[in-house]
Amino acid sequence: MLLECKNVSKNYGRKKALNKVSLEIPEGRIIGLLGKNGAGKSTLIKLINDLLVLDEGSILFEGKPIGVYSKEHISYLPERTYLDKTMKVSEVIKLFKEFYKDFNEEKALKLLKDLDLDIETRINKMSKGMQEKLQLVLVMSREASLYILDEPLGGVDPATRDYILDTILTNFKEGSSIIISTHLISDIERILDDVLFIDKGKIVLSSSADSLRKKEKASIDEVFRRMFKC
């Protein structure tokens, strides 16, 4: 098993952000982590990336506790960029190369060239859409075993969404898995193998995407809307 979460809980003060969440992510799957705002998606992702400390339970990556090893093999796209915007693109690439053994510089340069992006540009001089694309290119240029993408489609136009989906499909390493968290389900559902619905800090549904469609005779988006009608 690539990733295993067992009875993971996380509280913010008295609020239970995650309540005994258990899940298993095998190799070679694309998984949609789907939930409303505040359902616990980002908390779970931050725990897996060692950016928060859990209160209860355990998370194992390839059988080892989260730590240096897991960070070497998990490529993470955060919801908000952590890049220093005064840096040039070429400087960020150098940073990634030094930081990650699995970073494929050649691939990153090629993808940026396809975007017509001059690598001597400073990040704060780029449009928001281009900044998002740059971040995605960096993350997908790592030859990781697990990619975790937190809201990769948030706040970008439909053409950019297509670019992002294409880039994900074209560039993930064969045999690796991808977890994509989003609430923009209709744009992404056709590439998913499996879906996890998360609500109020609990996993409320876990299924293969196609068998859920078959069972409910509806799109994943529709099933989600029915289940979480306000």
């Binding site: 799957r29 694309i30 294409d166 499909l169 074209t170 064969e174 056709r190 193998d193 196609d210």
Partner: peptide, 14 residues
């Protein structure tokens, strides 16, 4: 498989 999946914009597993 990979080329065809890219063309169809679907997951290679599917």
């Amino acid at each position: 498989v990979r080329d065809l999946a890219l063309k169809a914009k679907v997951n290679p597993n599917t």
